[in-house]
Amino acid sequence: MKNNENKLSDSFSRQNTTLKKRRRWSESLIQGSLFLAGFFSILTTAGIIFTLGKEALLFFQKPEVKLFEFLTGTAWQPHINQFGILPLATSTLLTTAVAMLIAIPLGLTVAVFLSEYASRKVRNFLKPILEVLAGIPTIVYGYFALTFITPLLREIFGKDVVNIYNTGSAGLVMGILILPLIASISEDALAAVPRSLREAGYGLGATKFEVVFKIVLPAALSGISAAIILGISRAIGETMIVAVAAGAGPNLTLNPFKGAETMTGHIVRISGGDLSYDSIDYDSIFALGLVLFLSTLLLNIISQWIVKRFREVYE
């Protein structure tokens, strides 16, 4: 046994006579590369801010563009040098509003149903369906809007009322797209409400409906608002549905049955052609991109902030 011990010991390249720190170059190298991989995401953000900022600056330096007119102008017609963002922004807000009108009530109802009412079996059946719904590419939703919802709307409200391209149909389908997002985040928020709170409600003789509406929902309110804000951010940035169904050509209107191009839709249409780098069109998509980036970023940060505060409540 003793012999064996020594024999085995010798087979280790036993530097362990010392405890001295060794410089492990490969370890440092690996750690360095992994840090760079992590740091790369900072470069991405810097890239977004830098390129959008730089080209947008070029755009605003052109003699035909003025920042004030950009923010307040009611016409976006590049060929006659009119760059007012309002028609594009209005239709972005209009499609977003229609989408939220669908997605908020339906999404919340689905969330409440799944988390409070549905049996485990029903939930196991429904959740994957929602996941599938959320995973379908948006171009498919665009196709659905144009070939199904629009004809349906035209059938219902009359062909002379509803245009072939209209913001209403795009917004409606966008609502279906965003429904699963709101439902799943809200459901997480509802599930995070502690059992003890529910039991307190039942202990006082409240009905299930009362517990859900008067105790659980208010307690999950901040999580739900975070979900809604995230949904709005998603709707503002959504592109293919509006590019296919909402119509080409900026149009300052609040009528959801008329066609009107959104910011994202405009970017797609302009860059779909062979865009030359020195044109004002090229610069204008960066200005619009900057507006999109900043507004969605702001919404995302607000939503994260709310979620963070929400968490602190229960810890």
Binding site: S41, G47, I48, L52, E55, G237, I267, G289, T296
Partner: peptide, 24 residues
């Protein structure tokens, strides 16, 4: 900062990535 940044990047609209790709 890296972690927060990654969470925020996940919420950037895809068309903005397109614009970034075009420029870079």
């Amino acid at each position: 900062v890296i972690q927060t940044n990654i969470n925020n990047l996940a919420g950037v609209p895809s068309i903005v990535y397109g614009i970034l790709g075009l420029a870079i």
